[in-house]
Design a protein around this nucleic acid. Structure first.
Length: 528
RNA sequence: GCGCCCUUAGCUCAGUGGAUUAGAGCAUCUGACUACGGAUCAGAAGGUCGGGGGUUCGAAUCCCUCAGGGCGCGCCA
């Protein structure tokens, strides 16, 4: 469909012919449908320098535009906007374009380079919980989006398998295996004895802590599999000791100093609130030291950019991470923190208590089992990262219009239903070039096509803003327009040519829905 | 105390590339089943975009400020 690329040069020519100063016009999608498909405010921006009224300028531009291919109508509106209405028959081309592009529809090469997306990164000392679930969904969808616009993406999971916490975990497991209480500040959950029993049943081990750690990591990857999240790299902190950390400290050079028996990084030089300890006075390196070595490791692997997906409780790390990058001398723009708010669990409007102590905690595994992967992922992804999510176990499985997951998936099932009916009726066109897509001329069809045509813009914006919810909201808008089309237009009918044209429109709608939901990691079911 | 985020319709939330009459779902009210899945559709009603200043021809959107709410500020991990 015609867009800014075609309209901009035409408008510039008109500016020239109208004797107006040259200016690169910007175009936007008007909010109001009556304002057409594209709009430019170029006349408004010229009003001041030219000293004429915006509407007057707009009219002058239009007078010199002449006719524009694919545009049906151009008018001046409001304070001086020039609105372009795309020709109805031009919309058929959109359908053809979508069907031809298939799975590539909406993807682009607007970005390039290698990006590392680190997310979840929960330590394998216990099962994943709700917060990790949102993190998994957001991180994975973000990775999908980045791939869709041309990035070469690596999904990475980092975990601490060294240091004090690891020893504490090991001690806890060992205590439990002897029938004793874990240390006060150790790990107490029921899963500890589960894992211990499991190991003993399988013939024991000579390193219980290690074996338990591996088992829990295995459980976590199992949960992630169920979530359809697959990492390219699982990176254990141990790989950074001692060489990586030593090299990192050396590379940090003058920014490192000793005081009070400890070794510090002068992060305050780079905007942090206080300096951070690298090596404690007892000689033990902190996790912060490992974080430094880890960043250096990532960059050494050739990434152009590092993205850290973090829960809002970690926002204090932003300055710290940026300070590390600065201290190493990396361009700060090459690291990016993508934050998201937390998740509150409800059941039928009542909060579900979450307590590690009492074991009332709902693990993410249990949640997935109860609501399913599609509902979980979709619910985590349809909200802006900036708002906390109230995740209601009942509302999320509710099967009606109130639940957007089902609303969207139902449109997918309906599409599949049409396909089945069409095939039974012998309607199964193989070549879209033979179809007369200009027959798609009802309002419902035209509006559906218009929504379809904006998909690539939505993907680009969602990727740029790291905003997966834009894809979810788009899918809802698409479903809405499809349902209306479904209600008003019979696809499989007596008029063969019309049926064929509508068949292709349905194919295009399905393709777009599949592509959009695919970015979210949600399925487009054929039956429900 | 400092920092980050949030405050938009009765409720839950979009919209924050400045711009033409601020959107959706739920709830409320009125309609649509002799056609491909009514798990749907059409319509009505509902908002001084937390308050107050400012920038701009134009602000939900940018800046300042105040008020509420969430989170974070370790030689913890």
């Amino acid at each position: 469909m015609i867009g800014p690329e075609q309209l901009a040069p035409v408008v510039r020519d008109a500016l020239d012919r109208a004797g107006l100063p040259d200016r690169a016009p910007t175009f936007e999608r008007p909010r109001q449908r009556e304002h057409g498909d594209w709009s430019t405010n170029v006349a408004l921006t010229l009003a001041k320098p030219v000293g004429r009224s915006p509407r007057d300028i707009a009219q002058a531009i239009i007078d010199h535009l002449g006719t524009v291919d694919g545009v049906h109508e151009i008018d001046v509106a409001g304070p001086g906007f020039i609105n372009f209405h795309v020709a109805r028959d031009a919309l058929g081309d959109v359908v053809r374009q979508i069907v031809t592009a298939g799975a590539e529809w909406g993807r682009s090469q607007r970005a390039s380079g290698a990006v590392n997306v680190e997310f979840v990164s929960a330590n394998p000392t216990g099962p994943l919980h709700m917060g990790h679930g949102r993190q998994a969904a957001v991180g994975d969808a973000l990775a999908n989006l980045l791939e869709a616009v041309g990035w070469d993406v690596t999904r990475e999971y980092y975990f601490n398998d060294a240091g004090r916490q690891m020893r504490l975990f090991s001690d806890s497991v060992t205590a439990v295996s002897r029938g004793e209480e874990p240390p006060e500040d150790g790990y107490h959950g029921a899963y500890i004895s589960d894992v211990v029993d499991e190991i003993e049943r399988d013939g024991g081990t000579d390193d219980l802590g290690e074996a338990a750690y591996e088992r829990i990591l295995g459980r976590i990857t199992g949960t992630l599999d169920a979530m359809r999240v697959h990492f390219d790299v699982f990176f254990g902190e141990r790989a950074l000791h001692p060489d990586g950390v030593a090299k990192a400290l050396a590379a940090l050079g003058d920014h490192v100093y000793t005081a009070d028996g400890a070794t510090w990084l002068r992060t305050t030089s780079f905007g942090d609130d206080k300096d951070r300890v690298l090596i404690r006075s007892d000689g033990e390196p902190t996790y912060f030291a490992a974080d430094c070595a880890y960043m250096a490791d990532k960059f050494s692997r050739g990434f152009d950019r590092l993205i850290y997906v973090l829960g809002s409780d970690h926002h204090g790390y932003i300055k710290r991470l940026e300070a590390i990058a600065d201290a190493f001398g990396y361009d700060r723009d090459r690291i990016e923190i993508v934050m998201h708010q937390f998740v509150n669990l409800f059941r039928g409007g009542a909060p579900v208590r979450m307590s590690k102590r009492t074991g009332e905690m709902v693990t993410f595994d249990e949640l997935l089992e109860e609501v399913g992967t599609d509902a979980a992922r979709y619910t985590f992804l349809r909200y802006s990262r900036d708002v906390p999510i109230d995740f209601d176990l009942e509302a999320v499985v509710q099967a009606d219009r109130a639940n957007p997951v089902y609303y969207v998936q139902y449109s997918s099932a309906r599409i599949a239903g049409i396909m089945r009916t069409a095939h039974e009726a012998g309607l199964q066109p193989s070549n879209i070039d033979d179809a007369d897509l200009a027959l798609l001329d009802t309002d419902a069809e035209q509006e559906l096509i218009r929504v379809l045509s904006t998909y690539p813009e939505v993907v680009a914006l969602a990727a740029d803003e790291r905003a997966p919810q834009r894809i979810a909201r788009y899918a809802e808008r698409l479903a809405e327009h499809f349902h209306r089309f479904y209600t008003e237009c019979q696809v499989v009918g007596d008029d063969r040519d019309l049926s064929t044209a509508r068949y292709w429109l349905v194919v295009a709608a399905r393709q777009t829905l599949v592509n959009a939901l695919g970015l979210l990691g949600v399925t487009a079911p054929e039956r429900m």
